[in-house]
Design a binder for these strands. Structure first.
Length: 818
DNA sequence: AGCACGCCGACT
DNA sequence: GTCGGCGTGCTC
């Protein structure tokens, strides 16, 4: 191959102004080491930065400026050409720089930094006054010759010009180096070089009192290979004190070797065998297999109730895909909460599976990623970002519980795993399977439209009955004089469980913000006239008001209920702590484990708390929706939802959908074992369709109702939403940016009937970390038709926002407006 | 994003 | 007179 003249490089600089390829000459020496996707170090202005090659060309429009590539960072390009294209698509779809897209694709920490060492070539001829910069710099250079230039400059910015001058004058020399973010991990290994005859003499020579040493030596000899030191110590009970004399005598050799970090430990478990499929499962399996084998990109919605045996269908479909030498990705919402799923995959596929998720250390992630890139595994199980697994021949991507909000990335680029999967499916002619008992409304709508193929799995594999769901009307409770947060039925239910030694789970479905206003007498909830979104309670300067977080509408807090004229209008926003206090009062004898963001911040906090509950250390588990997924405890016979309202009246048009999904999930999971389960849902709105349909697990009816609602309000799936958030410590500045953005969008999109602009309004999280936040929301039918104006307005105002000391973010296809 | 260059107020 | 504040503009 004739070496191309120029490499087109995207530099790792997060600024829209440099988000385009720069041309670099390819030195002959590096020609056979550069490919599309190769990471390189390039001179960029006065410094060196990391970059990625996205292409090659024979010409450049800036021939007088081109410089050569400085360094090639890896021998195998981390990005395949497919992934380079995917990064390009990500940056266009979610409006981020290509550099940011590439970072989202690669395991965190896989970054190299340019380093520069300064060496004194000739001492500067002048003698400098003590205390002058010159003498200080000279002293520092002599004292710490290993400090990098970057370190020196960050400690003493004022030295920068001096260093530059001395380099120019030839007093100093710059030596370039690279610091890699992640190193391959090494571990100490032990082995014995002794032959069998040597061993005997050695054992004889050792003192009879040196029992541990002899054991250690024999153990190593019997092993016949190098063993990891920590394992040897663990098995033989030896320590470094035992080892030391053996090393000194040369009986044992210690060596550092590279190892793959194995986050799940060595798996000895026997492989599980495929289970026989029910006719329903068989049908689902065949449909997926046909799609994969067809070699045409397709999306399938696998709509199966909890317990319908979706996992076994996934396992067998993946097995079939892998047999054809194509690879598969399995996404799960929160891997820390679904260890069973990982276990099942490990058992079925053994070493063929890599596991990727956010709780792995940087090094562990890197190792798993490398196993994938090198083709050592064909299957990946992981959370959201695993959708970027660097496979080169994808056949199948499965997204389990596809409706879960965790599939939307919460920082830039704010991608939706489902969309990424569908893009990759087009690239690889692969199949996407979206699995859920309660699909996202959009997904179900696409199935209705025929864009997505739908398979139903309506019955449970073992035909268990769903638990009884009781909906308690809290208005009646209030009328009969019960002012506490527990209905009498729930109180009684908990008492019974405590007496019988069974367990209770209580949900407080709260997201930690957004106080809504409700009449405790009649259940009236204050809503926006235009958006129908529940209004949010605000208190400023003693004035109580209600505001819409979508369109900005505001009114005074009514003193009496507009509906029933009663005076029980209250704002709601109970936290788990308050419920815990209340539980302590009502059931002083019960032990309670509380799980929410505050108690689960540690690395294994989730697992620890859940296992303590499983062991019976507490009778009541109280938590937010995060516990809904771990819900599989044999002794739990009662699940209580403290207030369905808290999710029903989030200032979010998806609130009804979320409530329906959560209640269905709770009901579907409770009482899976011998003991019959009961679910109690407390609410002031028992007649609400989300609650009524969830009570009987009627997804289709819910869908039918909700989709009409969405249609009349121009919400997804009929319009897509993109949200901008302007953030600034200064309220006026934040508001100004938001207003200007709104203005510019209106001007460029004026008169279009496929676009709706919801004006500047305070964000649901109106103040976060002392900063004010304002939203502008854009609704449109097709992204293609608005992407250019959006990009223009966003990029120019992003710069403005920064000048004012704040920032502007964008969330394309926002799933939740915060 | 950095980093350099360039034009205005308080000081070795 | 200089030093060093941060506004503007460029990076193959």
């Amino acid at each position: 191959m004739i070496a191309p003249k120029y490499a087109e490089v995207i530099v790792e600089v997060k600024s829209a102004s440099v988000d385009r390829p720069f041309h670099y000459e390819v030195p002959a020496l590096l020609a056979d080491r550069v490919h599309v996707g190769t990471r390189v170090l390039v001179p960029f202005g006065p410094r060196r930065v990391e970059g990625y090659i996205v292409g090659f060309s024979e010409t450049t429009d800036a021939p007088d400026k081109t410089k050569p590539l400085a360094e090639v960072l890896d021998d195998e390009p981390p990005l395949t050409p497919d992934l380079v294209k995917l990064a390009g698509w990500l940056s266009e779809r979610y409006l981020c720089t290509k550099a940011a897209a590439v970072q989202a694709l690669l395991p965190s920490g896989m970054r190299a930094k340019a380093t520069t060492f300064l060496r004194i070539k000739t001492d500067p001829p002048d003698v400098y006054l003590p205390g002058s910069w010159e003498s200080e710099l000279l002293q520092e250079l002599y004292q710490s010759p290993n400090k990098t230039k970057e370190q020196l400059v960050s400690e003493h910015t004022e030295w920068r010009p001096l260093i530059r001058a001395w380099v120019e004058k030839g007093f100093l020399e710059e030596l370039h180096g690279v610091k890699h973010g992640i190193q391959a991990k090494t571990m100490a290994f032990l082995f014995t070089p002794l032959t069998s005859a040597d061993l005997q003499t050695a054992l004889d020579e050792l003192s009879n009192r040196a029992k541990k040493q002899k054991e250690l030596l024999s153990y190593l000899f019997d092993a016949g290979e190098a063993l990891m030191m920590k394992d040897v110590f663990a098995v033989t009970g030896a320590s470094s004190a035992t080892l030391k004399p053996l090393l000194d005598k040369g009986y044992v050799v210690k060596e550092e070797r590279e190892v793959n970090r194995d986050p799940y430990g060595i798996q000895h478990a026997e492989k599980s065998q495929p289970l026989p499929l029910t006719p329903t499962q068989e049908n689902a399996y065949q449909t997926i297999k046909t799609a994969v084998d067809s070699g045409a990109p397709q999306t399938i919605l696998l709509q199966g109730v909890t317990g319908s045996g979706k996992t076994e269908v996934y396992l067998q479909a993946i097995a079939s895909c892998v047999e054809q030498d194509r690879q598969a990705i399995m996404l799960v919402p929160e891997i820390a909460l679904t260890p069973q799923m990982v276990e099942q995959f490990k058992k079925r596929f053994g070493d063929e599976v890599a596991v990727l998720h956010s709780r792995l250390s940087t090094g562990e992630k890197y190792d798993e990623w490398r196993r994938i890139r090198h083709g050592e595994v064909n299957i990946v199980v992981g959370a959201r970002s695993a959708i970027f697994a660097p496979f080169d021949s994808l056949g199948l991507m499965i997204i389990d519980e596809e409706h879960e909000t965790s599939y939307k990335q919460d920082d830039h680029p704010k991608y939706l795993a489902r969309e990424v999967a569908m893009y990759r499916a087009r690239q690889h002619r692969a199949t996407v399977v979206l699995g859920s008992a309660t699909p996202a409304l959009e997904t179900r709508w696409w199935a209705h439209q025929g864009i997505v193929q739908r398979i139903e799995m309506p019955e449970r594999v073992r035909g268990q009955k769903l638990p009884k769901v009781r909906v308690i009307d809290m208005r009646d409770e209030l009328q009969s004089g019960n002012r506490s947060m527990f209905a009498n039925a729930l109180k009684q239910g908990i008492e019974e469980r405590l007496e019988r030694g069974e367990q209770v789970i209580l949900f407080l479905n709260r997201r930690g913000f957004a106080t809504f206003v409700l009449c405790r007498s009649c259940g009236y909830v204050a809503r926006c006239r235009d958006c129908e979104i529940p209004l949010t309670y605000h208190k400023a300067r003693g004035l109580e008001s209600l505001r819409c977080h979508y369109c900005g509408f505001a009114e005074r807090l009514p003193e009496t209920c507009p509906d029933c004229k009663g005076d029980h209008v209250r704002h709601f926003g109970t936290g788990t702590q308050r419920v815990e206090e209340e539980l302590g009062k009502v059931f002083p004898e019960a032990k309670v484990i509380r799980m929410d963001v505050d108690t689960t911040s540690g690395k294994d906090a989730h697992a620890t708390l859940l296992s303590r509950f499983r062991k019976g250390e507490a009778q009541i588990l109280l938590g937010t929706q995060m516990i809904a997924k771990g819900l599989d405890f044999p002794k739990v016979t009662l699940v209580g939802v403290i207030s369905a309202e808290t999710s029903l009246y989030l200032p979010d048009f998806r609130a009804a959908e979320r409530t329906f999904q959560l209640l269905t999930q709770v009901a579907g999971r409770a009482g899976r074992h011998e003991l019959p389960g009961e679910v109690i849902v407390q609410t002031y709105n028992p007649q609400h369709y989300a609650i009524q349909f969830a009570k009987h697990q009627e997804y289709e009816k819910f869908f039918d109702h909700e989709v009409r609602h969405r249609y009349t309000l121009n919400n997804p799936p009929f319009f897509e939403l993109t949200a901008f958030t302007s953030v600034n410590e200064d309220e006026m500045k934040a508001l100004h940016i938001a207003r200007t953005l709104e203005d510019r969008l209106r001007r460029s999109l004026d008169g279009r009937d496929d676009v709706i602009i919801l004006g500047t309004s305070p964000a649901p999280l109106a103040r976060l970390q002392g900063k004010y936040r304002f939203n502008v929301v854009l609704k449109y039918k097709k992204f293609k038709g608005v992407s250019a104006p959006i990009r223009e307005a966003y990029q120019s105002l992003q710069g403005e926002a920064q000048k004012l000391g704040g920032y502007l973010t964008i969330d394309v296809n926002a799933q939740m407006i915060l």
